[in-house]
């Protein structure tokens, strides 16, 4: 299937693919530090394994980023 990941078109050879599978496939180091947007909707963290990714889907891995001043 052809999927857009962070704006890049990618061909993935898989019959079935969940959000959880994709996080593993793309070697996302700390899934806890990522929010996943699938076709514009944020995927509930508890539903990663049961949310299917289909041909032509657009997936964004949105990283939590801190920074700035400490302990405010």
């Amino acid at each position: 299937m052809n999927v857009s990941i962070n704006g890049e078109a990618e061909e993935i050879t898989a019959e079935q693919l969940s959000v959880g599978d994709l996080l593993k496939l793309k070697d996302v180091e700390s899934p806890d530090m990522v929010s996943v947007q699938l076709n514009g909707a944020i995927v509930d963290r508890d539903s990663y394994d049961k949310t299917a990714i289909n041909d032509k889907d657009e997936v964004e891995f949105l990283y939590f980023m801190g920074g700035g001043a400490g302990k405010c």
Partner: peptide, 16 residues
């Protein structure tokens, strides 16, 4: 809307 809840504290790398 996008980030929902703070990530678990032990998962978080900070600048420090």
């Amino acid at each position: 809307c996008t980030f929902r809840n703070p990530p678990p504290p032990d998962a978080v790398p900070t600048c420090s």
